[in-house]
Design a protein around this nucleic acid. Structure first.
Lengths: 108, 108
DNA sequence: GGGTACACCCACCTGCAGGTAAGTACCGAA
DNA sequence: TTCGGTACTTACCTGCAGGTGGGTGTACCC
């Protein structure tokens, strides 16, 4: 790994994770706490959510903001790079929106 | 499955496969025969390549054109829908191009 | 006759992404 | 004093995407 054939390859390495696109989408609306994210993306396990958030943080698209208090409070927000990534994903989302029905139909 | 939370979800269902983005990229340059694709995407096994091509065909983004002759000749090309998908992937590719170095660096 | 190229198909196997369930440490409310 | 909420971590397990290696049929070249 760590060798990309093209830009698309690199981008996929960042957003390629079961919940990552949805996480980015959620955070693009507004910053959120861990629990809020968990409830929004119904179906994610706690482990996988934090895991994917850590990877997004490592890749520099998500910022983790720890409010030192009890009980703990952690807020996630998109970095500038993350916002750009989100914008780059928009056309893909629109394409999906447009052809969703046809795709769904073909898988029955 | 067959239930998408949003357009992005649907699009990912289509391009989410180890070689699919690269296949689309290759076919966007020009239509290709099976063997040409195999050589271009060095690393794909024959099985997985045809498998992913079949799925892309089923999803209506790739057209399979069989020239009835011996030895067999099969040409794959993007459909209009496929070309639109390719265009929708461009911004993502550019984002990747731009941040590729940073991403590579963070994974060492 | 042996080798190569074409575009497949099939049975089998492996690695790892993702899921499950439990534990940590703290506090406030019932 | 037990419960619920906060944000995690750890050990363990499972399913399946993807990879390996073989086989098919035809025709050309040496």
């Amino acid at each position: 790994m760590v060798e990309f054939l093209c830009g698309l390859d690199a981008a996929v390495a960042v957003v390629g994770g079961k919940w990552k696109p949805l996480i980015l989408w959620a955070l693009s609306v507004e910053p959120r706490r861990t629990g809020e994210l968990r409830r929004e993306l119904s179906g994610v396990s706690e482990k996988v959510l934090t895991q994917q958030l850590r990877e997004l943080e490592r890749d520099g698209v998500v910022h983790r903001e720890i409010h030192q208090q009890v009980p703990p409070k952690v807020v996630y927000r998109l970095t500038r790079k993350g916002a750009a990534l989100d914008r780059a994903l928009r056309p893909l989302g629109e394409w999906g929106e447009e052809h969703m029905d046809a795709i769904r139909e073909v898988r029955a």
